[in-house]
Structures are given as structure tokens and as C-alpha cells.
Design a protein around this nucleic acid. Structure first.
Lengths: 224, 224
DNA sequence: GTCTATAACACGATAGAC
DNA sequence: GTCTATCGTGTTATAGAC
């Protein structure tokens, strides 16, 4: 059996040629223009395919959106859970290692030069900004179980941490993560400008380092 | 001279009747449907006005979006800076008081039953999810100066905190804030569901308490 | 200042040829 | 499986009556 391909490999390689090109183009357009504003025409132009091909392969624009979200969510979670397994391998996990397993993979993926996963966070930001039935469904089914596993790992690392606080702080961590990744993305770079160049938001290692320090301390805070 | 009205008062009270109704409706529609997906028809229907009136009063759909963002950003910053001034009044400020001045007003405003500011965070989430020239301009000119004032206050509260870290952690705080507010908004409530009801995301005081505990500890973290 | 009517165009979806 | 052509609808914007 062949080993699983790295997350940065072509997510849609196994697909039929046109279907694959449409998926790739749709990811790009949905991520940069939003699920609502993206048009089928823009997607098919980029895919060098036809509007009718989308309906043939996916049935509707909405079904295409759901398919894209599903296809792209897998690799991130796999990387995260592998890193979490490594952190938990030797008994009680180290908190910083758990946090790094949570924030490291998405940051790394966002900075890939090529590959589809690069746009994942942007896609998730879109889905969250404008919740819709279809995208919510795809996200919940892919991320809920992973979220609970990480919360459990946080508690394993910090046995004194009440479960309620673990959930709140998991959410805060995800918020900080998504905010900083989308800031460093697509030429926005508000933090870099605001800090007068002090914060290098183009350095993924710096981002992970800063995130881990902040989140780890936040999770260790006393009960409010 | 009359005192400034409370932030929850009608933001558009001074406006001409139709123009005011359009602004109010536009805020609602832009905040819930996104800047790209919102249509003039939906806005004018809600405003009980005419499509042509928008062009008469604002010139274009894009100019209307910019106007809405500008009109709504003021009250939040005023509340925050007033709270920051109180925190800094007696010499060296308390870190928790500075953080509460940052996150308290937006959380409180999001939970207002009426008033336009209730939708502000949602509007900012939209603007950030899909950065555009016009909305960026409106946000930067309203928020950049305030951000730097808060970073300075963080450093004043924690003299050992390097300026670079202060900026990173300010950004992380904003990310956690926006994430949790948009989660508790509009029936999304993912954290509530995910935590099996442990986290009451309908209680603004609980949210502020949790945010302040997490962020305060994160800011006090050692240099990574 | 506010309306109706309409121009000019983009959208998602589908029928039917090949 | 992939195309062209087209239907019906919704969009921004504007011209002109009042």
C-alpha cells in the first residue's frame, strides 16, 4: 500500500481531469471572493471549463462549495492529529507541544508556496464570516471531533484545568490563530504596518512561536 | 452644549429621514449578508425606500458601504478610550483593567437588544474576511490610532513587556475577541454546542471574564 | 427629494447536440 | 463527458416625471 501523500500534494490528483480543475479553481475563487460573491463563471473561466460541467459534476454551485470545503479540510486535521499523537505518546503531554500541534500545521500550510491547502484558512474565515447551512455542515463534521480531542489533551496536560475553561480557551486559541493567519495573508499585513515593522508576519516560525507563548500562558491562567 | 449620546442611541438620528433609514437598513444587511453578497434591493426593501434613493444620497453601493462602516465605528472606540482613560487615571494602569477596556465595550455592544452598534463586530468580521480597498480605508483610519494607544497602555501596565510582543499579543487578543463574539452571535453557538452546554456564550459577563483571564495571562507570558 | 420605468448586464441552471 | 445556446431572474445604475 502506498503511503499517504504529504498534505501539500495535489488534493485533487485522483479526480477526473475537468472535475479536478474545477475543484482547484473553485477553492481559489471561494477562498478569495467568499462563498456568496464567487460566481460560477469566474470559477469555470479559471478552470478553462464550462459552466455546464459544474452542474454535471456537482449538481449545483452550492454542492460544489460543500465539496471543496470537505476536500480541503482533511489534510489539516490529519497533520494536527499526528502531531497531537506524538505529543501524547510519552504519557502526560507537554502543554506547549499540544498547542503547537494545534497551531503549527495551519500556519505552515498557509505559507506553502504551492498546493491547495494554502488557502484553507482563508476558506474557513469565509465560512465563518457568513455561516450557511451547507458550509456549517461540512465544517462541523470535519472539525468537531478534532476540537474535543484537543480539549481533552489540554486537560491532560494541565490536570487542574476545569473542562469549561478548557473549551473557552480552545476557542480563544482558534480565534487568535485565524486572525493572525488571515492578517499575514493576501497582502493585508495590518499588524506588520501597525507595529512599524516590529512584527514580521511573513515568518511562519515567528508566528508559531508567538502564538504558542501567548496561548500556553492563557491556558495556564487561574480560574477567572 | 449637550452631552454626547450613549453609544446605544440612534447612530443615524441626525440624518434626513430616508437617508437615515437607508443607512440603518444597510448596516443590518451588510453585517448579516456580507459586503459582496448584499444587494441594494434587500437594503431598500428593508428601508422602505427606493433603489434610486441610494444613488441620490450616496452615489453608489460601494460608497454606501464605506459610509456605513465609518458611521458605526465611532461609538465603540469612544467607549474603549473612555474606559482606558479611567484605567490609566491613577498612574500605572492595572493590566486586567486595560484588557477589560479593550474587550468589554465590544462584547457589551454585541449583546444590546436594540441599537445599531449591536451589529458592529459582525460588520468588522465581514470587512476582514473580504478585504476591499474601501472598507480597509474606513477601518484603518478609525482603528489604527486606538490600537497603538492600547499597545502603549499594555506596556505601561507591564513595563517588562517588549514592544514587539505587545503588538503580537494585542493582535491575538483582538482575534480571540472577534472569534468569540461572532460565535455567540446569530445563532451560530458552536462553542456552546461543542462544550456540551458547559460554556454559556449567551452571557456577556462570562465572555468578558473568560477573555480577560486568558488575555491577561497571555500578555504576561515570558518572551518566547 | 422621492418616485416609476427601464437600460444594460451577470447570474445559476438546463436542454440538447455531439 | 463536454460543449453551445438560451431561459428566467436578479443585479447596479440612470433617465425623467412629479
Amino acid at each position: 500500500m502506498a503511503p499517504a501523500p504529504p498534505a501539500s500534494a495535489d488534493l485533487f490528483a485522483g479526480e477526473k481531469a475537468t472535475r479536478s480543475r474545477i475543484l482547484r479553481a473553485a477553492l481559489e475563487v471561494f477562498a478569495t471572493r467568499g462563498f456568496e460573491a464567487a460566481s460560477l463563471r469566474e470559477i469555470t473561466d479559471r478552470a478553462e471549463a464550462n459552466v455546464a460541467a459544474v452542474h454535471y459534476h456537482f449538481g449545483s454551485r452550492e454542492a460544489l462549495a460543500q465539496e471543496v470545503l470537505r476536500a480541503v479540510a482533511g489534510p489539516l486535521n490529519r497533520l494536527r492529529l499526528e502531531a497531537l499523537d506524538r505529543a501524547c505518546a510519552a504519557g502526560r503531554p507537554d502543554l506547549a507541544a499540544v498547542v503547537e500541534a494545534l497551531v503549527g500545521p495551519p500556519v505552515t500550510m498557509s505559507f506553502e508556496a504551492t498546493g491547495e491547502s494554502r488557502l484553507l484558512i482563508r476558506l474557513l474565515v469565509q465560512a465563518r464570516a457568513l455561516p450557511r447551512e451547507t458550509t456549517n455542515q461540512a465544517i462541523f463534521e470535519q472539525y468537531d471531533a478534532m476540537a474535543v480531542r484537543f480539549v481533552d489533551a489540554l486537560i491532560a496536560a494541565e490536570p487542574g484545568l476545569p473542562r469549561e475553561e478548557a473549551f473557552w480557551r480552545y476557542a480563544f486559541a482558534i480565534g487568535a490563530l485565524m486572525y493572525i493567519v488571515s492578517d499575514s495573508d493576501q497582502g493585508y499585513h495590518r499588524l506588520h504596518r501597525l507595529s512599524g515593522g516590529l512584527c514580521d508576519t511573513d515568518d511562519p516560525q515567528a508566528i508559531v512561536r508567538q502564538l504558542v507563548a501567548f496561548i500556553t500562558a492563557g491556558i495556564r491562567a487561574g480560574r477567572p
